[in-house]
Design a protein around this nucleic acid. Structure first.
Lengths: 123, 123
DNA sequence: CTCTTAATCAACCAATCAGTTGATCAACGA
DNA sequence: TCGTTGATCAACTGATTGGTTGATTAAGAG
């Protein structure tokens, strides 16, 4: 069993966080620089409480961190957390692609490849 | 009636699909090769109907495709779909990291950098 | 102290999702 | 044909999510 360096369901929360268009837009905004709740709320027609919840989701997923500056609580994007996600995806993407290339070679390089729909023949 | 052609909510579905540990395990399994519903169901203590639903989620998210082989309906992982996800994440990760490096340079190369709006340790 | 700003907490509602059971379909094999 | 296997469809339950309104904390500014 692979031990998770982070919590057991960190990936759950991280992917779930990115499954929402509002939170993805926040990530996009935060990639340009830190922002407060009010700044993040501006582009959206939802209440600030809802925005606060979205940020909490991102924070609990480990994608952002927060600090304190007087009343403001600037949100900061954690690039390393994003990298962990791409690392997970790429891990399996590369395995699948290498399998694909192997099959391609077996079939001959010149043949336009069909999707590998069956690889075993019934006995 | 599916104008399902890379709609704006494709990312929603894809990230949502990966937000579930069962579906992630299926992706991991499928990276090693195509599999049937029953094969995918084996490691889990859930019904095949539930597994079928998970596969439908992955399929609707564009992460897997299905074909027919007699009664079996092998599931195939779409590596290109995974790549689109890493592309989205990396887009913003790289922006954030480059911003980070710029700040690092401004502060001087020798200084160990702290987060630009530094997080204060609670006491 | 009072007022304003920034943000969170708490309770609630509508919608959605994971999982179940039971019935049905589709493709073989005898 | 019938029976079996692989997989889906349909309806239902329980838990969770996204959103709201209203009250509350925290930190200045006057």
């Amino acid at each position: 069993m692979e031990s998770d360096t982070q919590g057991p369901d960190t990936l759950d929360r991280a992917f779930m966080a990115l499954a929402d268009p509002v939170r993805r837009a926040m990530v996009a905004r935060l990639s340009r620089g830190d922002a407060t709740v009010n700044e993040l709320a501006e582009p959206f027609a939802i209440t600030k409480q809802a925005v606060s919840k979205h940020i909490q989701v991102l924070e609990h997923a480990g994608l952002v961190t927060r600090s304190r500056d007087a009343q403001r609580r600037p949100v900061h994007l954690d690039a390393a957390a994003l990298e962990r996600l791409t690392a997970w995806i790429d891990q399996y993407r590369l395995i699948a692609e290498s399998r694909f290339r192997q099959l391609d070679q077996l079939l001959g390089a010149g043949i336009p490849h069909e999707e590998q729909t069956r690889k075993e023949e019934p006995k």
